[in-house]
Measured scan of single mutants.
Amino acid sequence: MADQLTEEQIAEFKEAFSLFDKDGDGTITTKELGTVMRSLGQNPTEAELQDMINEVDADGNGTIDFPEFLTMMARKMKDTDSEEEIREAFRVFDKDGNGYISAAELRHVMTNLGEKLTDEEVDEMIREADIDGDGQVNYEEFVQMMTAK
């Protein structure tokens, strides 16, 4: 299944994987998964984290390695993001709930994920998604960005 991913997608997933893999040992533990999910405003229980890991832990060693992570991402993409997942993601970014993602809100979430971005990089990300040019990202623009192939 992971063989249907483009090189660009694999590179993006590698970057995402390293955000989860806090200690850089090449595997994601339940603790690391929990840290990232909490930084995104989720509050999973230990059991939920274990279930999430077990779902993709092909070799049964209790952690997720990069090939397992790729399989999980490929699977998720095949079920292409349901509207509800996209709306949920939008809410994570839209901290003040005004229906727009500002540069400050984007920077806040990315920083929580451990991504240190310059102001230019954040502005560039907003510009790429900002179709109507108002300097922020509304829900429609967010959907376009998330579903762009």
Score class of each variant (00 low, 15 high):
T29H: 05
R91N: 06
T6M: 14
A11S: 10
N112H: 08
G135T: 03
Q144V: 07
E8Y: 08
V92F: 14
E46V: 11
E141F: 00
D132T: 03
Y100G: 15
D25N: 13
D3G: 11
D25T: 07
N61I: 10
E121S: 00
A148D: 06
V137L: 03
F13H: 01
A129F: 01
M72Q: 15
Y100S: 07
M146A: 07
T80V: 05
P44D: 08
R38K: 11
N43I: 14
A74I: 01
T71N: 09
M1P: 08
E121W: 01
D134A: 05
T6Y: 03
S39W: 15
M73S: 01
K95L: 03
Q4L: 10
K22Y: 05
L5N: 02
A129I: 00
E83C: 01
T71Y: 01
A58L: 01
V92G: 09
R127H: 03
M145N: 15
A148R: 06
K76N: 07
E85I: 14
M110V: 11
P67K: 03
F13E: 06
I86H: 08
R38P: 06
A16N: 00
M73T: 14
R75Q: 07
M37R: 08
N98K: 14
E128Q: 01
G60F: 07
D21S: 10
D130P: 01
V109S: 05
G135F: 01
E140S: 07
N112W: 05
F13T: 00
G60Y: 11
G133T: 07
F69G: 00
D134L: 03
N54W: 09
R87A: 15
M72R: 08
R127P: 01
S39Q: 15
I28C: 02
T80W: 04
Y100D: 13
K78M: 00
Y139M: 04
L19D: 06
I131A: 10
N112Q: 09
M37A: 15
N98G: 12
S102D: 08
A103K: 10
D59W: 04
P44K: 06
D130C: 09
Q4P: 14
G135C: 12
D79Q: 07
N54L: 00
K22D: 03
N43Y: 13
I86L: 15
F13M: 00
V109R: 10
E115M: 14
F69W: 03
M77A: 15
D23A: 12
G62W: 07
A74F: 02
A74P: 09
L5I: 03
L117V: 04
I53F: 12
E15G: 12
A103I: 10
G60C: 13
M52H: 07
T118F: 10
I101W: 01
T111P: 07
D3N: 10
T45G: 03
D123Y: 11
V137Y: 03
E141Y: 02
G99F: 05
K76I: 10
R107G: 14
D94Y: 07
K149Q: 05
N43W: 04
T29V: 15
D3T: 02
F13S: 11
D25G: 12
E55T: 00
A11H: 01
A58W: 01
R127M: 10
F20V: 15
I131M: 13
H108V: 13
G99Q: 02
F20P: 03
M146F: 15
I126A: 05
E55N: 08
A104T: 10
F90Q: 08
F66V: 12
Q136P: 08
T6L: 09
M72D: 08
K14F: 00
E8K: 07
I28A: 03
F20D: 06
D21C: 15
F142T: 07
R75S: 11
R38N: 00
L113I: 11
E7L: 06
K31P: 01
K14C: 01
D94C: 10
E124Y: 02
T80S: 11
T29S: 07
T29R: 04
A104F: 01
K149P: 12
D23W: 07
V122Q: 00
Q4T: 04
Q144R: 13
D123A: 09
T35D: 04
G114H: 10
D57I: 02
K31C: 00
T147Q: 10
I131F: 14
L33Y: 05
D25F: 15
S18R: 14
T29Q: 08
M73I: 11
N54Q: 05
L117P: 09
S82A: 15
T71V: 06
Q136L: 11
D23I: 02
T6W: 05
I28P: 00
E115R: 00
D79T: 02
Q42L: 13
E8S: 09
N112L: 08
F13P: 00
R91S: 02
E46F: 03
G24S: 11
M146E: 05
A129G: 11
F142V: 00
L40N: 15
A11L: 08
L106W: 12
K95I: 04
R87S: 07
D132Q: 04
L113C: 12
E85N: 10
Q136W: 01
A104M: 12
A58V: 14
K116F: 02
T63Q: 04
N98A: 10
E121T: 01
G34E: 11
N112R: 15
K78D: 07
M77Y: 09
E88D: 12
D59C: 15
M37D: 08
I10A: 00
R107K: 14
E48R: 06
E124F: 06
E121Q: 07
E105F: 05
T80F: 03
R107I: 01
D119E: 14
E141Q: 02
N112S: 13
G97C: 10
F69A: 04
T147F: 04
T35H: 04
M146D: 07
E8L: 15
A16Y: 10
R75V: 00
R38C: 08
N61L: 03
M37Q: 10
E12I: 02
V36S: 07
E48W: 14
H108G: 01
N112F: 01
E32C: 10
M37F: 00
E32P: 01
I126Q: 01
F66G: 01
I86P: 09
T45N: 08
E8M: 06
D130I: 01
P67G: 03
T147A: 12
E12L: 02
F69M: 00
T6H: 05
I64M: 11
E140D: 09
D96E: 10
D3H: 06
R107S: 03
F20N: 03
M52T: 13
V137F: 08
A103F: 02
G34S: 15
K149T: 07
D123G: 13
S102R: 11
E121K: 08
E88F: 04
G26K: 09
M72E: 02
E15A: 07
P44Q: 11
N43L: 07
L70Q: 01
G24T: 09
V143G: 08
R87K: 08
L70A: 07
D3V: 06
V109H: 12
P44V: 15
A129C: 02
E46S: 03
L117E: 06
Q144I: 08
V137M: 15
G135N: 05
M73W: 09
R75W: 07
S102G: 11
R127Q: 07
V56C: 04
E68H: 04
R107P: 02
D65F: 05
N54A: 00
I28T: 10
R91G: 02
E68L: 00
T45P: 05
T71H: 06
E85W: 00
E141S: 06
T30D: 04
V56I: 05
I64F: 13
T63V: 09
E8I: 12
I10N: 13
E141I: 05
F17Q: 15
L33P: 10
R127Y: 03
V109D: 01
Q42T: 04
S82V: 09
D57E: 13
I101P: 01
L113A: 02
D57M: 07
T6F: 05
E124A: 13
F66I: 06
A74K: 05
L70R: 14
E12W: 07
K22V: 09
N138Y: 15
G135E: 11
E141L: 00
T63K: 08
V137G: 04
S102K: 01
L106Y: 06
A103W: 01
E85S: 00
